[in-house]
Write a protein that binds this DNA or RNA. Structure first.
Length: 258
DNA sequence: ATGCCGTGGAAACCACGA
């Protein structure tokens, strides 16, 4: 079973690239972030024509998350991260797919920091910790997948010294990520490649992709049941080099089972 | 050190991203 995560940066503007990548990579399950469209404008027909079913949680202009599945039915569990009735940003959706509890998330960017956006990021992190704590000890496989907007360590940034004050790398942000990990989650990429430089994002400008000036901010966090099933993981880096592409590349894992 | 690029939406610029 292959599960992927892809921040598309606009699902409609990215549709040709998304469909091409789906046809090449053929993941069984996909978590999408940054749909940037309201629910009624989600391109469900094109996605169904590509052989996938989907659930989505959209929002006009910003954010938006979705879960796609090729052959397994998707049973939605909930949408929206619990803990703040006034938070209307579409950044979280969870579902059961082929026995795996999948949480698709788009954690806030948080810049500029300090400031209200950074406060919102840290608050969102706290709410995620609370939700994750309820899921970590479930008897079945659980996966937190998506764009965390966090580089966990210096290995995950092309020039760490330049990112120290950035909301994606500030000490508070890394501490929040570490606190979440301490619940018992396993970072799939780091479990398989503890010392490799692996990026999932490259800026559009300054030829960041050409210079490999990247960041690793899209992650798969697995509970112990799922970790025991982990077979492989990788980044479809070449997709970042395609025409009209997202600034993120798709990331994926494969796990044993049906 | 820096939205230099890109997307979406409203209105021919702005918000936002990381």
């Amino acid at each position: 079973m292959k599960i992927a995560s892809y921040n598309v940066n606009g699902v409609n503007g990215r549709l040709p690239v998304l469909l091409k990548w789906l046809s090449v990579s053929r993941p069984d399950v996909v978590c999408l972030q940054e749909l940037k469209c309201p629910d009624e404008k989600f391109p469900i027909s094109a996605i169904e024509n590509a052989g996938y079913t989907a659930i989505w949680h959209g929002q006009k202009s910003w954010n938006g998350v979705a879960i796609l599945s090729k052959k397994y039915p998707i049973t939605e569990i909930s949408r929206g991260l619990p803990g703040d009735e006034e938070d209307i940003q579409s950044r979280f959706i969870e579902a059961e797919v082929n026995g795996v509890h999948v949480c698709c998330l788009y954690l806030p960017n948080g810049n500029p920091a300090p400031g209200p956006k950074f406060d919102y990021k840290l608050e969102w992190f706290k709410r995620l910790e609370k939700r994750a704590k309820k899921l970590i000890n479930e008897k079945h496989p659980v996966l937190l997948a998506g764009d965390f907007n966090v580089m966990p360590t210096e290995l995950d940034v092309y020039k760490p010294e330049r990112w120290l004050d950035d909301a994606l790398f500030r000490p508070e942000t890394r501490a929040a990520f570490q606190k979440l990990m301490k619940q018992g989650w396993t970072d799939a990429i780091r479990a398989l490649y503890p010392d490799d430089v692996i990026y999932t994002f490259w800026d559009y400008f300054r030829n960041a992709y050409g210079r490999n000036a990247g960041l690793r901010i899209d992650h798969f966090l697995m509970n112990d049941v799922l970790t025991k099933q982990l077979k492989s993981a990788g980044v479809d880096k070449e997709v970042r080099g395609w025409e009209k592409t997202s600034d993120h590349a798709p990331v994926w894992i494969t796990v044993s089972g049906k």
